[in-house]
Design a protein around this nucleic acid. Structure first.
Length: 209
DNA sequence: ACATTAAGTGATT
DNA sequence: AATCACTTAATGT
């Protein structure tokens, strides 16, 4: 209950809060744990209470592509449609940090849409956010060059982890932005030379420009 | 000290 | 910009 209020201040109706408390179940994930695999059926919609969840997609050749992060107070837009239509998951989610979430059985997700204004808004907003981000991502892939994608990735990661020091290997970055490790290394070197970041092993520190 | 893993480099396509 | 082949550097055992 207190978990709810902390992460989801917009879910206002008292009775809705009570229903969430009643039907939802709290799940704990340790860093690195896979929350949802490709192809699995989803029976709960996750409300992220704390931590950070990485959402990935897999292409035909089995290559993984990083899509976006889910933070506290968010939920997975894909899970709504997925479970309502009883489709298999086309995404995979991993706990990037230790994560706590409340799982809501789908039937309530549906029911509450008509009964609770704030729930409906929440669901709509989730879609809206995702759609906007998707459009931005398309823009990025279409128009942005690798170097700005890289910087964008780092800034996003820094923001989402709340630290200017990002702990990743060049290989991980490369996987996430779909580039080769060497390319990432070279671009990072450039950024370091231009004074925008400082590099270390498993470490990229973003400097104020 | 040695093995392993991450990072850097040059050449090739 | 990807891939390869290789070197160098950092880190764990």
């Amino acid at each position: 209950m207190s978990l709810l209020r902390e992460g989801f201040p917009h879910i206002a109706e008292k009775s809705l809060q009570e229903e969430i408390a009643e039907h939802g179940r709290v799940y704990d994930y340790r860093e690195g744990q896979v929350i949802m695999e490709y192809g699995s059926y989803i029976k709960k919609v996750p409300l992220i209470v704390s931590g950070l969840v990485k959402v990935m997609r897999e292409d035909e050749n089995g290559r993984e592509l990083f899509l976006y992060y889910l933070e506290k107070g968010q939920t997975c837009a894909a899970s709504f449609t997925c479970c309502m239509m009883h489709k298999r998951s086309y995404i995979k989610t991993i706990a990037e940090e230790d994560t706590v979430l409340i799982g809501i059985p789908i039937r309530y997700v549906d029911e509450w849409m008509v009964r609770y204004q704030s729930w409906k808004n929440f669901v709509m907003k989730t879609y809206d956010d995702r759609l906007l981000e998707l459009i931005r991502t398309i823009d990025k892939i279409a128009f942005m060059k690798m170097d700005s994608r890289l910087l964008d990735y780092l800034e996003n990661k820094a923001e989402v982890t709340g630290s200017s020091v990002v702990e990743v290997t060049h290989q991980q970055i490369a996987d996430d932005i779909n580039a080769s490790r060497e390319a990432v290394s070279r671009l990072l070197k450039q950024l370091e030379r231009s004074g925008r970041i400082r590099l270390g092993r498993n470490r990229v520190e973003l400097l104020e420009v």
